[in-house]
């Protein structure tokens, strides 16, 4: 009985705090995406010749986001019936958008407006603490290009 009560409490706490954290995170992501919209990501491998005078620099961003208790149980149930695991879709979306924001912030900090060839990599972190940790890491890196100082002749 006591165990069931503990489980239900964890479930409720996980649900409430998890959805609050997620709501706040999405709001913050949207806000920062608006602020950083001048930093454009360009998914091509070859830099066009018109940027030949620009200064390249590797920029990266990464984040580890953890699930909450409710999501883990919900995903476990979903595993039984099959189908979309919506709880994890939003988790990974948050992680991706956050990692890309951090990369764009880093580009903006060094004065770049363009990031070429962004590469996303996702890794599950679940082996720690005897398999108790359910989290996802997203890392993204790209080549930022900084405009040459004004007055320099192109080429």
């Amino acid at each position: 009985m006591l165990e069931l009560l503990g489980f239900l409490t964890l479930l409720l706490v996980g649900y409430l705090s998890g959805s609050w954290v997620e709501h706040r995170h999405f709001a913050s992501i949207r806000r920062r995406e608006m602020r950083l919209r001048q930093v454009r990501l360009i998914g091509i491998k070859r830099v066009p010749p018109e940027y030949s005078a620009w200064q390249p620099q590797l920029v990266a961003g990464s984040v580890v986001v953890s699930v909450d208790y409710f999501k883990r149980i919900a995903a476990g149930l979903r595993n039984f019936f099959g189908g979309r695991v919506a709880a994890y879709e939003t988790l990974i979306e948050r992680a991706r958008r956050e990692a890309m924001l951090r990369m764009r912030q880093q580009a903006a900090d060094c004065g770049a407006d363009l990031v070429f060839n962004p590469r996303l990599e996702t890794a599950a972190i679940s082996s720690g603490a005897g398999g108790q940790i359910g989290a996802v890491e997203v890392h993204v890196c790209g080549t930022a290009l900084r405009a040459p100082p004004a007055g320099t002749a192109p080429g």
Partner: peptide
């Protein structure tokens, strides 16, 4: 860090300790 991560696993959210660790390692 594992203990903190265990707590965060109930509440959800970013595991800052892990983010920093992975960044330092990279």
């Amino acid at each position: 860090r594992d203990l903190m991560a265990g707590f965060k696993n109930v509440f959800g959210g970013e595991l800052r300790g892990y983010t920093e660790l992975l960044n330092e390692s990279r």
